[in-house]
Design a protein around this nucleic acid. Sequence first.
DNA 1: TGACATCCCACACAAATGTGTGGTATTATT
DNA 2: AATAATACCACACATTTGTGTGGGATGTCA
Lengths: 195, 195
Amino acid sequence: MELTNKQQEVLMYIRKMIRDGLPPTIREIASEFGFSSTGTVRDYLTALCKKGYILLEEKKSRAIELTEKAMLTIPILGCVPAGVPVLAIENVEDYFNVDKLFAQKDELFFLRVEGDSMIDAGIMPDDLVLVKKQPCAQDRDIVVCRVDGEVTVKILRSRENKFFLEPANKNYSIISLNERSQIIGKVITAIRKYV
Amino acid sequence: MELTNKQQEVLMYIRKMIRDGLPPTIREIASEFGFSSTGTVRDYLTALCKKGYILLEEKKSRAIELTEKAMLTIPILGCVPAGVPVLAIENVEDYFNVDKLFAQKDELFFLRVEGDSMIDAGIMPDDLVLVKKQPCAQDRDIVVCRVDGEVTVKILRSRENKFFLEPANKNYSIISLNERSQIIGKVITAIRKYV
DNA sequence: TGACATCCCACACAAATGTGTGGTATTATT
DNA sequence: AATAATACCACACATTTGTGTGGGATGTCA
């Protein structure tokens, strides 16, 4: 079911308020759009609810929850045709769920990457890699490993029950894993911040 | 100023509620901890406020905001010497403030990168770039631009008052910005998720 | 000893807030 | 022509909610 223009405006406002920290009250929505009646807002909320964009909890103030469809996340856009407002809801390909990515059930840490040994895999010096602590990994996983006292980020390869660390840079050579080597964790995300 | 154990528990609960979508009301906090008086909760809130962990807005329901101090952070490690536990506090170089990165008030969106024209800058196909919407940018900024109906990610270059879009891949050529071109925003972060 | 913070309580009050019932007008669909 | 959805309005009511005022017990620090 499609949203009308007005309904989309109301949804956008609710999303903005939620991202700023607090879902709005019914009267705050009314005031934003110049409605003089709370009933008007309720019409919008029930419409958005029926169309599956929000969830409402009864008798609780500000209890407006965005569904997956319009979630409290940052929109991911695919290609955007010319002349269309960039942030229109129709362009949204998916939503980036921050909480899911950074849910702290596992032991996570960031490691700042030194050197260019993973540059062909798009991991540059000074990038941050989000590492999930685990003692083992699978073939082709990007892992953080301690070898002879040094910590490196490499691609884990297994051939004939032997493990190797493969760099993503032709100027570096493959390292064999020995008994003193230890897998610290697996890289699950790479992040680079531009100033 | 340090938090007491009880104050920490209350702060944790508030953080959990905020991440779940709604900051709690005073009476919800009271009920969670078995307090029979709202005054008790107010004592905690004013204490947390005075110690700089939360901000309170008067006369608004659920208006509890976390300060930077109280936000979720993941440790960033630099190089880790041999024999030392990886997550020891001494190794922490900085903290990555998740809430801060994604709680910006500016208009942000992610764009999924198509093609390999930025591969030498470490931006690979299917990476997500976090874009801050803005109509102009500076020399060497990585920008999202609309040129002749297509949206591309490129490096913005300015020479002698003319603007160009420079790819980070020798197989592509430089594009001149014309009147029908439009800068949509500036790339502030690149993210790649590994499965 | 006094001052202060912490950690609890009771109770009252006004404002904020969600809800309920009723209405009108327009437009699109059947 | 009838039905439904949309887009507004007014007003009343009960509950939720923040706030205010008062209190007590304990511990710490100067």
